[in-house]
Simulated scan of single mutants.
Amino acid sequence: METGEETVLVRHERAVAVITLNRPQALNAITRPMALAYAAALRTADADPAVRAIVVTGAGRGFCAGADLAVLGEGPEAIRAFVPDPEDLPDLALRLRTPVVAAVNGPVAGIGFAYMLGSDIRFVARGARLATSFSRLGLVAEYGLAWLLPRLLGTSRAMELLLSGRALDAEEAERIGLVHRVVEPEDLLPAALDYAADLAAGCAPSSLAAIKEQVYADLERTRADALADTLRRMDVAFGGPDLAEALTARKEKRPPVFTPLDRG
C-alpha cells in the first residue's frame, strides 16, 4: 500500500519549497494518505522561516487527474471517508501566509482542479488539459469551487465550466484568466521556480503574507471595511523595518535583506 510519504515529495531550492505529487503511474490521482501528506507538506513549508515561496507540481506527465477512481468505486461511505477534514481541504493553500505557485505539467480534473485553484499563481504547460469534471460523474461543484471559480472568472464563465465539465486546453485557460502563463513543457518547472525564487529574494515576507490575507478576505468584505483594513495595515507598514530596508537597499544598490516572517 502506498504511503503519503512516498506520494508527496518535498525539496528546497533558493528559499522555495517544491512539493511534488508523486503517483505518476496514476496521473497523480489522489488517495486519502496522499491528500493528508500534501496538506502536511504545505503546513510544514508555511511554518519554515527559511521558506519564502512554495511551488506545487506533479511527477510524470500529469498534475493531478482527480480522486483515485478506485476510491470512487468503493461506495458512499468510502468516498465520505476520503474527503479531507475542513482544515485539509484544497483551499488550504489560500489560507497560508506563503505564496503558492502551481506548475501544472499535465492533466487536471476534479480535486486536482481544486488544488490548482488553491494556488495563488498558476503556470501551465502547453498541451495540458484542464477540467472540473464533476457534472460528468454525477457530482456537485466540490471543495468550494462554486464560491471560488466565479470570483476568479465571473459567474458566466464559471457556470459554463462547472455545468459542462468539459476539458479546456492551456491556451483557452490563459485567455479566460484561469491560469497566468502558458510555457513549453520543458520550461514549466524552471519558469515557476524562477518566479517563486524572485518572490523569495525580492519581496518582503511580511508584504506577501499581508497581501494574500487582504485579497482573499476582501472578497467577502464591503468596500468600506476593506478600505479601513488597508489604512490600518498601511500605518503599520510605514513604521515597519521592511520599508526602511527597501529604501536603504535601493540607495546602496544592493538586494534588500527583509525581516523573516514571524511563523509563531
Rank of each mutant, 00 (worst) to 15 (best):
E5C: 00
E13G: 03
T20F: 00
L27F: 12
I30M: 14
T31V: 05
Y38A: 03
A40N: 09
A40R: 02
V55D: 02
G58Y: 00
A59C: 05
A59K: 01
C64W: 03
E77R: 13
A78G: 04
I79N: 03
R80H: 08
F82D: 04
R95F: 04
L96Y: 04
P99V: 08
V100E: 04
V101A: 08
V101T: 11
A102D: 05
N105C: 13
G106Y: 02
A109M: 08
G110S: 15
G110V: 05
F113G: 10
S119D: 07
D120K: 01
R129V: 08
R129M: 13
S133I: 14
F134S: 04
L149C: 06
G154R: 05
S156L: 09
R157Y: 06
A158F: 04
S164G: 15
G165A: 02
R166E: 14
L168W: 14
L178E: 07
P185I: 04
P190M: 06
A191I: 05
A192Y: 11
Y195I: 12
A196G: 09
A196K: 09
A201M: 13
C203Y: 10
S206Q: 10
S207I: 03
I211Q: 13
D235P: 10
V236F: 13
A237W: 13
A237Q: 06
G240R: 08
K253N: 11
P256I: 01
F258L: 15
P260K: 09
